[in-house]
Amino acid sequence: MIDPGLERWRLILGRPAAGALGEPDGEAAERDAALDWLYGRDDQLDRRDIRRREGGIGPSRLSTVDWLDGIVRLFPKETVERLQRDAVERYEINDIVTDPAVLERVEPNPALLRAVLRTKHLMDPEVLRLARRIVEAVVRDLTARLATEVRHSFAGARARRASRFKQARDFDAGRTIRANLRHYQPEEKRIHVETPYFLSRSRRHLAPWQVILLVDQSGSMLPSVIHSAVTAACLWGLPGVRTHLVAFDTEVVDLTADVSDPVELLMKTQLGGGTDIARAVRFAAQLIEQPRRTIVAIVSDFFEGGSEADLVRAVRGLVEQDTIVLGLAALDEQADPAYDRKCAQRLADVGATMGAMTPGELAAFVAERVGR
């Protein structure tokens, strides 16, 4: 039996720590076996000459269904989601999302959604029906959360006049600082604010804008594909906004007809293949009705598989007609991009705004332009 204070370390270190910490028993032994079923298959263990388990209830006796049932009972929800994510993304245990018996047991989460979208081409119709439950549940949650941010952004444009209603979202930092500079305390290096100022938020007629989302379908962009679909659904039907969603690899597919149903839209995406961003930008140019009231957001890692010169030329053409071009290397909750910096710099040099955004930040950017 292991000292309770050392049990966590024994689970983290695995079998190699048994000599120093001992063998777990009871529920701790079950946790140890569940962790070993997953992490014991890591090929680094062989390279580092770490001996694997030889007996017990290890990989040869646990099925995926048994393992899933066990971890739900043995670990908190956050840990279960991490284990499932590692299973499908790190070790590619695809039967978690392709085995009907497993699909009936799993609790939907974003990692499983990504796994379904990566493997849906392997599924027969019955399995696809069960997998769709995961897509629907996660997308419903994402949509509910993002819709709140979008509604907040479009609640009304801030007019440049004072308001007697003091709300943090309408705080006028610039005016407040200027008006209170006389209260600056050098020894404290701070301004004592006696009078804060706020802006009023009023609704106004919104002239129509087009928002065209061009989404790279390459596998590395999957989180951005998911959030682009949900973002487009949340923008769909808002006053003053006409939303288009176009997916591309080496081909270009206009998915605008399905924007109001992000589940159906995601089930139609085809991940992988090459990348021809220039072709997608030229397609977007054909959709534009009023160049000065259009935002084209290119969601891509900017590893151009076609002609980079053609891409730069196409983006320059949009910028020269006063269309706003956003180059988003990531559009998801983390907004942590990995992209071709040289290509991104060339696009920035011709007038595109390059960066990464969360869906809420993109909605706020659109709302600011639409409300002008």
Rank of each mutant, 00 (worst) to 15 (best):
A207I: 13
P208K: 10
V211E: 00
I212M: 04
V215M: 08
V215H: 06
Q217Y: 15
G219K: 11
S220M: 13
S220V: 15
M221D: 05
M221K: 10
M221Y: 09
L222N: 11
P223T: 00
I226A: 02
A229N: 06
A229S: 10
V230H: 03
A233G: 02
C234I: 01
C234M: 07
C234L: 02
G237Y: 07
G237N: 03
G237L: 06
L238K: 02
P239C: 05
T243P: 01
T243R: 02
L245P: 03
V246S: 04
A247D: 11
F248I: 05
D254Y: 07
P262R: 06
V263K: 07
V263W: 10
L265G: 07
L265K: 05
T269L: 11
T269G: 08
L271K: 09
G272W: 12
G272H: 08
T275W: 00
D276A: 12
I277L: 09
I277G: 06
A278L: 00
A278Y: 02
R279L: 13
R279V: 07
A280G: 04
A284G: 02
A285E: 11
I288Q: 07
E289K: 13
P291V: 06
P291L: 05
R292F: 15
R293W: 11
I298F: 04
I298N: 00
I298T: 02
V299F: 01
S300F: 08
F303W: 15
G305R: 04
